[in-house]
């Protein structure tokens, strides 16, 4: 059930207008695992995801999916292997949950094409997997933040891709909905072997849920590997510029980062 796809960035340089955001970055996304990308605001995490999913052409370097440059793979073909859920997708007014989830079938349909049994099955599976079948006929506008995020993930699932990139899937959600979404993504990874790459703000949740953690700083990968190896006091200092204490999370064997801040410098943990 594990995905055998490899997604690799080589000497990638990205930017908008005059500014360079990512500068000669190399990274490897391990197949069949959950990868979390962390880094300070405006360090190019979203830009990197956009480029890995073909939305932004590189200035230099390349992104390879199974050895082929993603920017040379036809858009529709790529969209059947690799999905992206952007940070703030727009739900049209009054759209129902099923309709929105059904739009994930786009890359599997041609111009004028008919809705097939396979499409129906994919939508039903996506609703089930995200526990949103009970919301099927509801309007997306009426849903809570957590429900809405599950519906967007359902849309990405209906796309049936082996790789799924998510840009801050937990932003604007309270802690219970954050856990709900991350548990759901873990379910997908474990049951379907979907390779997951997500940008996360919360270092501790990233360390908890990721098999592979990538810390970005100054447009490059500062550290990558198992969370225990990456999330260190040195790394937090370098990447975020703050002092911290990293301890072992008592509920898992993952590292837990406690930021210190100017007013608590002398407190010993």
């Amino acid at each position: 059930m594990t995905s055998s796809h490899t997604l690799v960035a080589q000497a990638l340089t990205l930017g908008y207008g005059d500014s360079t955001v990512i500068n000669g970055l190399d990274l490897i996304v391990p197949g069949g695992q959950i990868t979390a990308i962390v880094g300070p605001n405006a360090c190019g995490k979203s830009t990197l995801l956009r480029s890995m999913s073909r939305l932004l052409a590189p200035r230099d370097g390349r992104v390879l999916l199974d050895g082929k440059s993603v920017h040379k793979i036809p858009a529709r073909e790529l969209a059947r292997t690799l999905g992206l859920l952007p940070q703030s997708p727009i739900a049209p007014d009054g759209i129902t949950v099923t309709d929105l989830v059904g739009r994930g079938r786009q890359p599997h349909q041609g111009l004028f094409s008919r809705w097939t049994r396979e499409d129906e099955q994919a939508v039903a599976d996506a609703l089930d997997a995200t526990d949103t079948a009970s919301l099927a006929d509801r309007s997306v506008d009426e849903l809570s933040g957590g429900q809405r995020q599950r519906v967007w993930i359902a849309m990405a699932l209906a796309q049936h891709t082996d790789l799924l990139l998510l840009d801050e899937p937990t932003t604007f959600l309270d802690v219970s909905h954050q856990i709900e979404v991350l548990d759901l993504l873990t379910d997908l990874n474990r049951s379907r072997g979907t390779t997951i790459v997500m940008v996360l703000h919360d270092l501790n949740l990233a360390a908890r849920y990721a098999d592979h953690l990538i810390a970005l700083a100054d447009g490059r990968v500062h550290a990558a590997g198992a969370p225990a190896d990456v999330l260190t006091e040195e790394c937090v200092r370098h990447v975020f510029g703050i002092e911290s204490k990293v301890i072992l999370d008592p509920t898992s064997d993952k590292p837990l980062m406690l930021p210190i801040g100017r007013h608590h410098m002398n407190v010993t943990v």
């Binding site: 999913s53 969209a79 859920l85 049209p92 739009r103 786009q106 094409s113």
Partner: peptide, 18 residues
Amino acid sequence: GLLGAMQLGDDTAGALGV
């Protein structure tokens, strides 16, 4: 169908292969 995908935003549509 393509317009329907573009209603979700340019990036979402792009990720759907539009």
